[in-house]
Each structure stands twice: as C-alpha cells, then as structure tokens.
Design a binder for these strands. Structure first.
Lengths: 109, 109
DNA sequence: TTTATATGCAACTATTTGGTTGCTTTTAAA
DNA sequence: TTTAAAAGCAACCAAATAGTTGCATATAAA
C-alpha cells in the first residue's frame, strides 16, 4: 500500500479516527469493538474499519478474548510524527519569516 | 469543508505534499510553481493542486510577482500538530503499556 | 506588436475513503 | 441445546483525492 509513516499520518488525518484513538487513550481499560461503537454515531462496521486503520498504523493493539476483541491505544508510533515535526521547528521563527518580510518590503519599495 | 486541524493533518498526510513542503522549507528562496514542478514527476497542475492544499493548511504562502507566483513554506502551523502529539507523549511509556502487560499476563495464568 | 512563458480554470478519470447493510461464524449464556 | 451477543466478511455506495489533459489568460521578452 504505502510506507509506514504515511499510514501513520493518514491514520491521524481523519477526525473520527482521532476521536476513537483519544477515547482509547483515556479509557481506564481496553474496550471492545461494541463498547467503542456505543460511543460514536457511526455503525459498528464503520468503527471496525477505523480500528483496522489505526491498528495498521500501530496506534491500536488488540487482545482477543473469546468472542470479544479488546482494543487499547499505543501512542508510541506518534514519536515518528513528533520527530517529523521537530525537524521543521527550527523554521518556525527564522529565515523563512525573514524571506516573507523581505518580499513584502520589496513590494512597498 | 472541514476544521482547520483536519485540513492541516490531511495536508501532511500525502507523501508528495510532504516532499513539496520539504523542498520549499530547504529552498534558499521562494520558488515559482514551474520551479517546483521541475523537481517532481507530476504535472504542473498536479503541483498547483498540492500547493493549494498546503496553502489552505497555512503551510505555504504565496507572493505573486507579475505572472509568477513565488511559494515559500511556513512551518508555524505545525505547532498545532506538535501540540496534538504532545498530549499523548505522557502515554508513551506508562499506563497503557502496563495494561498490555497485564492482559498478556492474564492470558498466561 | 508578436511571441513565448507562467499560470489559472475546467473537465475528466481512476482510486481511495468513509460509510452503509446483510449475512455468516464464533462464542458465551439461558 | 437453544438462543443471544460479538465480531468478521463481502458487497455496495457516494464523495473525496490525486492525478491528468486541453484551453484560456495574463504578463514579460523579442
């Protein structure tokens, strides 16, 4: 399909998926698919699909117990996102902003 | 369409767009659409579309000069991504991992 | 002023995405 | 052992996405 980091970025790009992930993170125990579904307006199958995407991104792990599948969040892969962003933090306030200023000034001149 | 943060996440979810953004960040000057296109295998129109997405996410600003549109990166909006990730860093090594261990242990018992 | 360059706009296409419903299978509970 | 619950699988659908091509327009250069 696509590389790991893109899977990860795509997983967190969907707002519903971010909400599901968040619900799992703050949950005091692992939640079954049905339990997760009860918290959202979409169907159980819809949740299943999102869970699969999150699982493939490494953000959710599943522990099967009988007929139930207990899902719990794993935030570790977000380190990759953090690392990606970190590279660009050095550009938050410096040269590129200066370039912007430079161009704006040359317009006025 | 969708909320600001989702636009931002979606903007960086596409690998080509991340590449374009990166190229703009490390460029020593603003680049025209044509200049950007020359660095990528997709058509100029394809680049234009990506630039528009990046612009709407606030990651690219454009300075029009005559018939040319000079694009430059603005990394600042990534602060929002950083903030989003930061909340979950507290879960990188603690309780959720413990839950995983707990469940694995109860399987063995 | 003619010509060439930079870009925009619009239509089209294939694939992916986010969602649905229906049915089956597995497992637990009456 | 019958019944109910949890989930998977598959097909389907509409909308969004990532890309294309063709043509028009604006601007700079000969």
């Amino acid at each position: 399909m696509q590389d790991k980091i893109t899977k990860l970025f795509k997983a967190i790009a969907d707002p519903t998926r971010r909400d599901i992930f968040h619900a799992l993170v703050i949950a005091t125990s692992a939640l079954s698919i049905t339990q997760i579904s009860s918290q959202f307006d979409i169907s159980r199958q819809g949740v299943t699909k999102h869970i699969k995407t999150l699982e493939e991104a490494g953000l959710v792990n599943i522990n099967t117990n009988g007929r139930e599948r207990f899902c719990y969040a794993n935030a570790k892969p977000l380190k990759e996102v953090s690392k990606w962003v970190e590279f660009y933090t050095q550009f938050w306030d410096n040269s590129l902003q200066n370039l912007e200023d430079f161009l704006n000034n040359s317009k006025d001149a």
